[in-house]
Amino acid sequence: MIAKLFFGLIGLAVAPVLGGIIAGLDRRVTARMQSRFGPPLLQPFYDVLKLLGKRPSAVNAWLVLCSYLTLMSSALAVFLFFFQADLLLIFFVMTIGAVFQVMGALSVNSPFSQVGAQRELLQMLAYEPLIIMVFVGIALKTGSFSIENIYALEQPLLFSLPILFLALGVALTIKLRKSPFDISTSHHGHQEIVRGLLTEYTGPQLAMLEIAHWLDVVLILGLCSLFWSTGMIGMLVLLAATYFVEMLVDNISSRLTWQWMLTRVLAPTMVLCLVNILWLYTL
């Protein structure tokens, strides 16, 4: 118990640094794919530090409250992940942040942030069922929703849940708002309806949401790592490959509409998830 607590706290301390570096790598690799050099590796940290130093001003106090709550929920979810808690619990805690981020954006009467918030709700509608399906698949295989039991497996989950891993990849793309699903808001150089969901989050608030985003990246990659729980090297290779494919997709695809996301992405992916679960269920 104490060991797990310790592990959780260490995870919480390391996650923002790791997340920031992943974001920096992401920008560098993206730049290389566009035959540019790109920013320094530590660029995300510079951005966040600068934003923290901006003189705060916000349209209303809700934006401030919501950015704090978003960061809190992401941090709690990461802590619970390293604490090896219940997967569904982690999912629910993750939802707090997502919902409050949207609530903050909806509280401002600005067309850009309103449209962004509505789109973000649709993105949540698209990734939440997928993540639940993945967790249920894991529970079917391990007999438990607890992360601990996954590490007790002798064979990586990837072999029995390959399609669900694919679904998790889709959910990851939607959750992290990478192209083709950067519908509600977009990252670094890109723009979408100004800044969509994040239009009215400024200065320190934006910095907090950015850190929360890093934590989300770590959390989602952590979830991916569960699929290769038997060896450290395999896990790292799997994560690197997954994230590389994410970046590749981010760079080679154009932005899609939300209709496309719901009808052509969510629906077939759900069916595929069902196939994988049926396969586990009947075996």
């Binding site: 809700w62 939802t95 949207v102 609530m103 509280s107 401002v108 009467n109 709700l121 069922p129 998830c273």
Partner: peptide, 24 residues
């Protein structure tokens, strides 16, 4: 499948209602 989709829809309609309530 039904529970997963249903839960996600629940978040959709509650979330936007809460958001516009606190709006200024």
């Amino acid at each position: 499948v039904t529970l997963a989709l249903g839960s996600a829809l629940t978040v959709l309609f509650w979330g936007r209602w809460a958001g516009i309530l606190i709006g200024s």
